[in-house]
């Protein structure tokens, strides 16, 4: 009985705070993405050959955790199968945040574009005791800055 109450409390706390945190994060991501629109990040491996550029490796990473409610829902979802919305938004947020951080670093260098962007996702949940989902996303690429600036 006591355990049931605890679970209900944890799930509802996770629901309230997790939702709030997520919508706040999405708002900030969308706002910053608009700001960073002028600095394109591309997966292309061949930068323009005309003109001289300085190349520098830039990267951004984020470690993000799921809230208790979402993990709980995902656990239920595991029974029936199907689309796992709660994990989708988690990874989406993490990837976009990582790219934004990478762009931020490139911007401080005065870069014009980022080429050969690679993502790397790793599950580091083995580090917490209860094996809750903790995901690290690392984005890196080569920032190109016009020569001589």
């Amino acid at each position: 009985m006591y355990e049931l109450i605890l679970t209900v409390v944890l799930v509802s706390l996770g629901y309230i705070f997790g939702r709030r945190a997520e919508s706040k994060h999405y708002k900030s991501i969308i706002m910053r993405e608009k700001e960073m629109n002028t600095l394109p990040a591309m997966a292309s491996r061949r930068p323009p050959s005309d003109g001289h550029y300085d190349q520098a490796l830039v990267s951004g990473s984020v470690v993000i955790a799921n809230d208790y409610f979402k993990s709980f829902v995902a656990g239920l979802r595991n029974l029936f199968g199907g689309q796992m919305r709660s994990y989708e938004t988690l990874l989406d947020r993490a990837r976009r945040e990582a790219v934004l951080r990478m762009k931020q670093e490139a911007k401080t260098l005065g870069a014009e574009a980022i080429f050969n962007v690679k993502y790397e996702t790793s599950n580091i949940s083995g580090q917490t005791r209860k094996k809750m989902p903790v995901i690290e996303v690392h984005a890196y690429g080569t920032a190109l800055t016009k020569y001589g600036i």
Partner: peptide, 26 residues
């Protein structure tokens, strides 16, 4: 930091301590 991370698992969100750790390590 692990304990803090445990709390974060409740509410969700970024684990800044881990982000820093991996950044330094990288």
């Amino acid at each position: 930091k692990d304990i803090v991370a445990g709390f974060k698992n409740l509410f969700g969100g970024e684990l800044k301590a881990y982000t820093e750790l991996l950044h330094e390590s990288r």
